[in-house]
Amino acid sequence: MKLLVHNISNDADFNLYLKHVESFDIINPFYKLLGANLNEIKEDVVRYFAFVKKDDDTILILMPFIFRKVPYQDQEETYYDVISPYGYSGPLFNESMSRGYLILFWEAVDAWYKQNYVVSEFIRFSLNHNFQFYSGKLIPTLTNVNGRLIDEEAQWAGFKPKVRNNYRKSLEHNLTAKFICDGITDEDIDVYYTIYITTMQRIGAHDTYFYSLEYFKKIIKLSKNNFVVVLIYKDDMAISAELILIAGDTLYSYLGGTLADYFKYRPNDFLKIEVMKWAKKHGYRYYLLGGGRSDGDSLYQYKKSFFPDDKDTIYYTGRKIVNEKMYQKLDAIMNAKVISEDSQTEVPQTKEDIHYFPSYRKPVTKT
Rank of each mutant, 00 (worst) to 15 (best):
W106P: 02
Y80Q: 12
D57W: 00
G90H: 01
K137T: 15
F14E: 04
Y86D: 03
G136E: 13
K53L: 14
N128R: 09
A111F: 02
L104S: 12
S89Y: 02
K19A: 14
L16Y: 06
N15H: 08
L62T: 07
S120L: 08
F93A: 10
D44P: 01
F51C: 06
N128F: 05
R47S: 10
G35L: 02
D57A: 13
V82H: 00
G35F: 00
I83N: 09
E77P: 00
T141Y: 10
V118S: 07
Y113I: 06
F30D: 04
F30Y: 13
K137Y: 15
G136F: 03
P29N: 11
N15L: 14
M63R: 04
K32T: 05
I59Q: 05
Y17E: 03
I61K: 05
V82K: 00
N28I: 09
E22V: 06
G100S: 12
F125L: 13
N94L: 10
V82N: 01
D57Y: 05
E121C: 11
L34D: 01
L38C: 00
I61P: 01
M97E: 14
K42L: 02
S96N: 13
I8M: 00
D110K: 15
S96F: 07
V118I: 14
L62G: 05
G35D: 00
E107D: 13
H129F: 04
Y117I: 05
S135Q: 14
E22F: 05
Y117D: 11
E121V: 09
N116P: 01
Y48V: 07
Y80E: 10
A111S: 15
G35V: 00
N10G: 05
F131A: 12
D81F: 06
S84H: 00
W112D: 12
L60E: 14
H20G: 03
I103W: 03
Y88A: 03
P71W: 06
S9L: 13
Q73A: 09
R124A: 10
A108H: 06
P29A: 15
F24M: 09
F30P: 04
Q115R: 14
G87H: 02
R124L: 15
I139V: 12
S9T: 11
D25A: 10
I26F: 03
N15C: 10
N39M: 07
F65L: 08
Y117A: 13
K54A: 13
F30C: 12
F49Q: 02
E43W: 09
I59H: 01
D110V: 06
D13T: 08
S120W: 01
N130E: 07
N116H: 13
P91Q: 05
D74M: 07
I139M: 11
N128Y: 05
N116A: 06
T58E: 13
G136M: 07
F67D: 03
P140F: 05
F51N: 02
A50Y: 02
N28G: 09
K19N: 14
F30A: 07
I66L: 15
L18K: 11
P71F: 08
I123C: 05
E107A: 11
Y134V: 06
N15V: 15
I123V: 11
I139H: 07
W106Y: 14
Q115A: 14
L16N: 11
V52C: 15
K53N: 13
L38T: 01
F14P: 00
N130P: 09
G90Q: 03
F131L: 11
P140W: 09
R99Q: 08
E22G: 11
V119A: 03
Y48S: 06
W106S: 05
E107S: 13
